[in-house]
Design a protein around this nucleic acid. Structure first.
Lengths: 141, 141
DNA sequence: TCATGTATTGAGACAATTTCTCATTTGGGT
DNA sequence: ACCCAAATGAGAAATTGTCTCAATACATGA
């Protein structure tokens, strides 16, 4: 997800204690890359710190979200998922089968700058999703 | 949400039965505009068709989603919400307080066309969200 | 190094949301 | 009007998220 230690360091710098549960959660987020649900974070985190509780996972994910380090995302699941809070995420999502295709390069930097100014908003990341029907589901219809 | 009768007509055309529960749900979606959760659809729908069951709401929302007529969206809630399946939705979301600002005009039509061709994907709608810190939360920090 | 105060945690109850099952009903073509 | 597959309601069950509170552990200063 990010250079190792990045999240832990940011937590510490923001004045939060670097506890064992938090280290485990942060390590999972940094290692496992993408689109983790809170339950996945719990399960993976318990491999590192077996006592890890569900509540702490939710608490820490909320904390990291408020700090802008991760952000929630909806991904054809009912479960909340989280991705890196910086930079962009670009998806094509099939509304029939739920398949997700990713792409790079969206060219909205100019728009971002304009909005940041207009709304006096400090932009950290963006999500651009196109919703529609994938090739496979088009032919099966 | 759309010209009246639009959703009902689309259901019928797709070969689904136009039952009383479905009529109620569809009427709610068309009247109430934006960001309805499944529970809101249930409550409002029961004003029209009191027997309406929770399961049917979920089933119908999934059906409409698969047809591309509505799409799920994440909106600082834990509940799934649904919006019109066509066109674009553009938000600035504050990661601290959850405030959502909307804006029009995103200028990504060209990108959409390019991706549709590249992935052979039939695009029906898009979501563009910027994530960051709003003016108020910047000053409170 | 150690004691201290506070932030943090775990456990589990609780609440909200979503899914599933199955007997019953109903829309719409014949 | 009849028929039957599609659709429904009711409620159980599963999943996801929230809350409380006593116990614990981090980080600071001595």
């Amino acid at each position: 997800m990010e250079p190792s230690g990045h999240l832990a360091e940011a937590l510490r710098r923001a004045g939060y204690k670097l506890t064992a549960p938090r280290k485990a959660i942060v390590q999972v987020l940094e290692q496992e890359g993408k689109h983790l649900s809170s339950n996945e974070v719990l399960v993976l985190g318990r491999r590192i710190y077996p006592l890890l509780s569900r509540a702490t996972v939710y608490r820490t994910l909320e904390l990291l979200t408020n700090l802008g380090l991760i952000r929630p995302i909806l991904l054809n699941d009912t479960a909340q998922r989280y991705v890196n809070g910086e930079g962009g995420h670009h998806h094509l999502v099939c509304s029939v089968c739920g398949a997700v295709f990713e792409f790079e390069r969206c060219g909205i930097d100019r728009l971002a700058a304009e909005l940041a100014e207009r709304f006096d908003f400090r932009i950290r990341s963006h999500l651009l999703e196109f919703y529609g029907i994938c090739r496979t589901c088009q032919t099966h219809a």
